[in-house]
């Protein structure tokens, strides 16, 4: 019997967290779609999440594309299918690796930063001060971050797609000696519109998840510097796991056999 007790306790704690998170999300969303909107704060967050993440995301995409070409070549050469490399690269990048890699990198960069910033504001009573100055923290702090995540991740992933495909191109042309024009025409040949758009939809969802996890863990943090550190860790871990899980679910929705 005693073996079941900790199990039950864990389950209850888990369900309680899910409930709190759901309530937080509903509240944040309801404030995010109603005025007043703080466009200055939104602009700052978009810059932070979008523009300043470009180097990290670009580099990740470049090397992912490069290694994809290299790996596909070593595998496909075994059964004379090297001509499929451009298609494999572009489909893998646009459908999966672009959004997932960018999502994970941004989760590390932005999720932690949001949680640490809001967590510090919580423990130093800045959020309380905001309330007493007649400003709703959900509108002033959380809504701009959610919108910025939702809007900027698709843009980032679009850029990452291009850079990733370019990485594959570089390796194929300069290391594997493909003909550049052939490589490009092969890339376009089997690419469908929805390969790209599905990846961008995923990116929007991931951006929302990253901002939401950062806000939730930061906003509810307590217990001084240690609590803020925990909030940052939890934000990154939970955002990363949720990204991987929702990626699987979304792939199922977009590409389920008709």
């Amino acid at each position: 019997m005693n073996i079941l007790a900790p199990l039950g306790r864990t389950l209850i704690a888990f369900l309680a967290t899910v409930g709190r998170l759901a309530a937080f999300t509903a509240r944040a969303l309801s404030h995010a779609v109603r005025p007043p909107f703080y466009f200055g704060a939104l602009g700052r967050q978009m810059l932070d999440i979008g523009y300043y993440s470009l180097p990290v995301v670009g580099l990740t995409a470049l090397f992912t594309g490069m290694v994809l070409a290299l790996q596909s070549n070593s595998g496909f050469a075994r059964f004379d299918a090297a001509s499929a490399i451009p298609t494999v690269v572009v489909l893998s990048i646009t459908r999966e690796l672009g959004p997932v890699m960018a999502g994970l990198m941004v989760a590390g960069r932005i999720g932690a930063a949001i949680a640490a910033e809001l967590g510090t504001m919580r423990v130093t009573e800045q959020i309380d001060a905001l309330v007493t100055l007649s400003t709703n923290p959900y509108k002033y702090l959380i809504a701009p971050r959610l919108w910025a995540g939702l809007l900027m991740l698709p843009l980032l992933v679009f850029v990452a797609d291009i850079i990733g495909v370019f990485g594959g191109f570089l390796v194929s042309v300069y290391t594997l000696h493909f003909n550049a024009a052939d490589y490009i025409s092969q890339t376009w040949k089997y690419l469908e519109f929805r390969d790209v758009t599905s990846g961008l939809w995923k990116a929007a969802v991931f951006g929302f998840i990253i901002a939401l996890m950062g806000c939730y863990h930061g906003f509810t943090s307590r217990g001084g510097a240690q609590g803020v550190g925990e909030a940052a860790t939890n934000a990154v871990v939970s955002a990363s796991i949720l990204i991987l899980v929702t990626n699987y679910l979304l792939t199922g929705i977009f590409f389920a056999a008709p």
């Binding site: 910033e117 504001m121 130093t124 009573e125 800045q126 309380d128 001060a129 007493t132 100055l133 007649s134």
Partner: peptide, 20 residues
Amino acid sequence: RTDHLAKFGMLFQGAALFDS
């Protein structure tokens, strides 16, 4: 509540300034 809070000015023990 927002209107109610507009009646108050509060100095927090730790100042609680917005550091951004």
